[in-house]
Computed example of a mutant assay.
Amino acid sequence: MTTSSDPRDRCRELREEFWRGVGEPGESRGPLGDVDEPSLWPDGISAYRQVTTAHAGVVTTDGLSNPGSAGAPALGLELYVESVELTDTDPDAGRWLVAALEECAGAVAGAAPSVADALAEHELLSLEVSGAGAPSDWVSDGRLGVILGIRLPGRSTGYDVDGVRVDALSVTPLRPDELAVIAEEGPRGRQRVAEALASSGWYSYADAERPSVL
């Protein structure tokens, strides 16, 4: 339960409460790379946290939703990627996933005015990032596709801060043929890929060994 009268503290406390409902959050840290454009974040500083769950690891943005000048969450979302590769046993295994997350954070922060409208209209968003460090069979023409917002059954999709919704959006890498469907079909393609990931049991989980679901 939050007790602070400071909007920034309330955002942080509610974010902590949300992730404690998922697993055990670690300490906040800076980015691994230099692609997330911290100047575009509400505080001008970018931060991330590892969350350890019973079966996988999560890396999440930590502050994209911090309050702006009006005191309400500026962007109204946090991004996260989840994978068995993101564990303490082999910290390098999931670096490509963290790199993708950080690129997505930079893109979303830079497009803040239009992101909320796009989510309200489509529910799912897709991006292309550089694919730095990603397995070669995930990258096409030097780009890695990702889809934002696939829901995991049983997990809350966000939380409220002073009456403003903060969405916790998953970042899921796409195989080249899945990205091609989205490029060709647009919103319907995103929905088709998301439904295929769900029906195959992958949902929002990321894994270098995941086969194409199409």
Rank of each mutant, 00 (worst) to 15 (best):
L169K: 00
R155L: 13
R49Q: 13
E16R: 12
T172I: 06
G94W: 01
E178I: 11
V193K: 00
E13P: 04
L14W: 03
E209I: 08
S130K: 09
A112F: 02
E78L: 05
F18G: 10
V51I: 12
V129Q: 00
S212D: 05
S39A: 14
E185Q: 07
L77M: 09
D117G: 09
S156Y: 03
G94I: 03
A93H: 05
L79A: 01
Y205T: 07
E82N: 02
D62T: 08
L148R: 00
F18E: 10
Y48N: 06
L101V: 03
R192D: 11
E82K: 00
S204I: 01
G68S: 02
G186Y: 08
A47D: 08
V59W: 06
E17Q: 11
V213Q: 09
R188T: 14
P173Q: 13
P73H: 06
S140M: 10
W96T: 00
A107C: 12
G131T: 07
S126H: 00
L75R: 14
N66R: 13
E37Y: 15
E78R: 04
Q50R: 15
S200H: 10
R143T: 12
S28V: 09
I45W: 15
G21C: 11
G33T: 13
R188V: 15
C11G: 13
A132K: 08
I147F: 01
R151V: 14
R190M: 15
R165H: 14
G149T: 00
T60F: 05
G131P: 09
P42W: 12
G142V: 15
G186L: 07
A208Y: 06
E13R: 09
W41E: 05
E85M: 06
S114W: 01
V58C: 10
S170R: 05
Y203Q: 03
E78K: 02
L124A: 00
L32K: 08
S83A: 08
L144S: 10
D88C: 03
V35I: 07
G71V: 02
P135V: 07
G133H: 06
A107H: 05
T172A: 06
G142R: 15
E178M: 10
D141P: 05
G106P: 01
A105W: 01
A105S: 02
P31E: 11
E82A: 08
R20I: 13
Q50D: 15
T53K: 14
I182Q: 05
